[in-house]
Simulated scan of single mutants.
Amino acid sequence: MAATVAEQVALKEAKPDEYVSLHSPSKMGNAGIMAYGGCTMGTAVNGACQSVQAHYYLYSALGYYLGPSSTDRKVFCTVHRVRDTRTFATRRVEISQRQDDGTKRPCFLLLADFQVKEPPMLRFSAPPSRQYPDVDNCPTWDSVREALVSEHGLTKRRVDAHKAVFDLMGRFWDQRQCPEGVFAQNLMGIAKEIRTIQDKLSITEKVSADWVRSKHTLVTKAEQLSALAFVMDCALSFVPLAYSHQFLEDAGACSSLDFALRVFLSEIDLNNWHLREMKTITGDEGRTYSESRLWNRKGRMVASMTQQSILRLPKGVKATL
């Protein structure tokens, strides 16, 4: 079991541009032996970063989940060098797992673009959608859970469910919950009967936010970017459920299909606190589209991730619009 997020996405070179993960991907926010997609995504980003020179910086990573990865075996990472110029580098990365019959099954496909750092002609970024307290005035998940138990009578069973489902984040990341957010008020949808201060808003106006930083020191640029992919993926697929007083058990299927990670600054340090805000944008025909944005303490937007996810009705349930 990996002890840090850097270990979780670490790779060992088997031969040029081919790697194997040091650890099997871990589970979070899903059932059975299906792994958390952020593990696969972070591993793929790490593989892409290994293949470029240090003066190239990741600015775009577009990917597709081809199938779930399993937690009982390591992943293989194959890097294809698509483009190398004085300014840009492009990599196509395939993640696969070896099956019991010896064949490799593709799990994930990534297209990563890198650029040499350039001076800005313009410098601007959108702020968060609302004003949030500084990290020192935001509670931990333990404090949030204790408050929900004492103020709303939340049962130990559901508190323990939240701890278990999101244990991986707790192992790798320090988090502080912005109390105005939906996630902080209904425990990411687990406490679905609790009304939030955003209930009067439409689902596309609702937001959740938290402060995050790595619990363990990230050293290299590849570790920073891999960790960024890992944390930005967290919870996006079920934001629409939590914002509509539902959780994973209410859906027939809920998981990420594809994503676009945009990185706006070349220097990223997730050893320091960053503010992350999540919202959902649209949902129809069994899919949803949501976004997570990240700012540093100076208010500069560091990254954005959009995701389209599957959201299926349980069998035998009719749609309500």
Rank of each mutant, 00 (worst) to 15 (best):
H55I: 01
N46P: 06
P127Y: 00
F124W: 12
A61F: 08
T71W: 09
T40A: 00
A89Q: 13
S24L: 09
K104H: 12
V45W: 03
A89E: 15
C107R: 03
Q97T: 06
S21C: 04
C107G: 04
A48D: 09
V45M: 02
S125C: 04
E94K: 02
D100Q: 01
T87K: 13
R73F: 08
L111E: 15
L111G: 09
L22E: 12
V82P: 09
R123I: 13
N30S: 14
G67F: 09
C107E: 12
F124I: 08
T43A: 01
C107F: 07
Y65G: 13
K15M: 08
A61V: 12
V20Y: 12
T87V: 15
H23M: 06
L122F: 09
V45N: 00
V75I: 03
P120I: 07
K74C: 01
L58S: 03
D101I: 00
A35M: 07
D72F: 04
P120V: 07
T43F: 06
T71Y: 06
M121N: 12
Q97P: 13
R105E: 13
A48M: 02
A89M: 11
D84L: 11
F114G: 11
G67K: 03
Q53N: 11
L109P: 04
C107K: 00
Q50I: 12
L122D: 13
A44T: 03
M34S: 15
H23V: 05
R98C: 15
M121R: 08
Y57F: 15
Y36T: 14
F88W: 09
F114K: 02
S24E: 10
Q99I: 06
Y36S: 07
Y56D: 10
S60Q: 14
P120N: 03
P120L: 04
P119N: 06
V93F: 05
L58C: 11
R81Q: 13
